[in-house]
Amino acid sequence: MSFNRRQFIAIGTGVSASAVLGLAPSTASAAGELAQAAIDAFSGDATPAEGKITLTVPEIAENGNTVPVEISVESAMSEDDYVAEVMILADGNPAPGLATFKFTPMSGRANASTRVRLAQTQDVYAVAKMSDGSVYMTSKSVKVTIGGCGG
């Protein structure tokens, strides 16, 4: 049977509406998905394990424009066994990436401090990739009283 124009347009609108809904989840889960996608891309074949990373962030950030973040990863930092990269992310920011630190055996110690913008109360993640490809991950929640993404 053939559809008349009215039925065809109704079906078409229904299909595109559900497609739009499927691609545009709520802001909270969208940011979670973006962060997860970044973590997956960074980890490659490895599954992130717990441990080795110490992530230091304030429990409450008075000013979301400048929140101190420090990471430290246990490692010999020798030529054969060192921390290659540590990525930090904020899963509630419009774009989750904050920074990726790259270490070498000359670093001596795999630690770094910086200051980041947090748009709202959310989780900060640190993911570490070792020279042998293994991956570790940890996260901490930060309460933000004044958001820091220009909004």
Binding site: N93, A95, P105
Partner: peptide, 18 residues
């Protein structure tokens, strides 16, 4: 360090060197 827009203004970075 690869820096993303989430870094604060006046970027501060502290790290170690042997």
């Amino acid at each position: 360090t690869v820096i993303e827009p989430g870094m604060s203004a006046n970027p501060f970075l502290s790290f170690s060197a042997k």
